[in-house]
């Protein structure tokens, strides 16, 4: 018996999910951040964020098709974290690192928070 592992399968699946997002195929929720709107797949959001996992496993909230985030959330920070969820790449612009980290805290993305902490400490002169 043999087993063939396609080592790039996970990244290929994620790329296709991101293609579906950009074509708005089977997206099932709109995330409202201040005045900006982001379409996404609930399952991807739940897989990446503790906050969305809690929201969409709540039987009263899982059928919602629009979620407004706290007004303190920075739309640019959220956009970068949503891109990370669908690409595994976290873009860290100097001017946005705190917004990204605070948004990751809000979204309960602890591993991203830890990584941002380490990045900030390592880049402190």
């Amino acid at each position: 018996d043999s087993c063939i592992q396609f080592t790039r399968h996970a990244s290929d699946v994620l790329l296709n999910l991101n293609r579906l997002r950009s074509r708005d195929i089977l997206t099932d929720v709109t995330i409202l951040v201040s005045r900006q709107q982001f379409r996404a797949h609930k399952t991807v959001l739940m897989a990446c964020s503790g906050l969305f996992y809690t929201i969409f496993t709540d039987s009263l909230k899982c059928s919602l098709n629009a979620i407004s985030l706290d007004p303190k959330v920075d739309p640019e920070g959220f956009a970068i974290l949503l891109e990370f969820m669908y690409t595994s790449r976290l873009t860290l612009k100097e001017s946005l690192i705190m917004a990204i980290m605070n948004t990751a805290i809000y979204l309960q993305m602890d591993h991203v928070v830890d990584t941002c902490h380490r990045f900030i400490k390592s880049s402190d002169p």
Partner: peptide
């Protein structure tokens, strides 16, 4: 992502969804 300094993070990136609640 050309021209951007890319740092490879080998650690866990996201939470793990429990097998059951």
């Amino acid at each position: 992502y050309e021209g951007v300094n890319t740092i490879k993070e080998m650690g866990r990136s996201i939470h793990e969804i429990p097998r059951q609640e």
